[in-house]
Amino acid sequence: MEKSKKFFKEADKNTLALFGIALLIFALMGIFAPGSFLGIANLQGMCIQFPEYGILALGMMLAMISGGIDLSLVGIANFSSIIGSIVMIKTGGSGTSILLGIGAALIVGALCGTFNGFLIGYLRIPAMLVTLCGLQLYTGLGLAVTKGPALTGLPESYSLLANGAFFGIPIALLIFIMVFLIVAYILRATVYGQHVLYMGTNDIASKYSGIHNLKITITTYLIGGMLGAVSGILMASHYNSAKADYGSSYTLLTLLIVVLGGTAPEGGKGKVAGVAMAVIVLQLVSSAFNILRVNSFVKTFVWGLLLLAIMIITKVVESKKKE
């Protein structure tokens, strides 16, 4: 009892509010469309979809905590999954070649992220500009390699990664939970995790406290790049192909999730739990729309409205507090 009280005290209000919204959607949909919404098929479908952008959102969150932004994640995801797929196909499509492909994708993601981090940390070009260019650059690289169309012919067993289940739990969900725990651990319990928070709060004071800002910046975007690669691996497995422009709507979506999850765009503040909760809420809304047969474009509209509404509310609350 004591513990749960403390838990609620420590969890921030934002995360709790999201949790409430998620419950509300469950309840409403459970009443109006219990068969289709709470059915195993829908639940499993949801669990396959959200890890893809949920993992990207974690990368975005890290960048934002460090005081930057990463708009190139989708580009990195696609480019690394393309390279990974090529390796998989070229090495014959066996079990080891799948591992090789995944390894290659992670390395490519890390390299792209390092490149971003170098331009941002060393040349001091604004993160927004670097990653906006990066999106173009990595998408362009993907296009250059594939010549445009989707890369197919991936090993059959590879698609199990996103579409398969382990004791009834989708593997994609397990991967998401694993990545989620790792990022949460990094932020909470490692020196890097604390340093990135310091740097995001005040990068001058962090320099004067002996924190190596360049190293932290590069590490942040490197981790972001690897998270992008993980998401790319899941996307390629989901569609059983790799393409330079998969998931192009994810950039906005991840930004929305991160802001919704209580991360401050000016840096220094962000919670993994909030982001995870925001991912779940968005997936629930999205599923509810599908079941209610709402035009899928309405989603884009609603995401935009939500993003603006959340930002406005936070700003208004903030200025009220200051008064």
Binding site: L252, L255, T300, F301, L307, L308
Partner: peptide
């Protein structure tokens, strides 16, 4: 970005 999403979504949906 938000306004872009709203405008684009509204165009396609409505």
């Amino acid at each position: 970005l938000g306004v872009s999403s709203v405008a684009n979504g509204a165009t396609l949906a409505f």
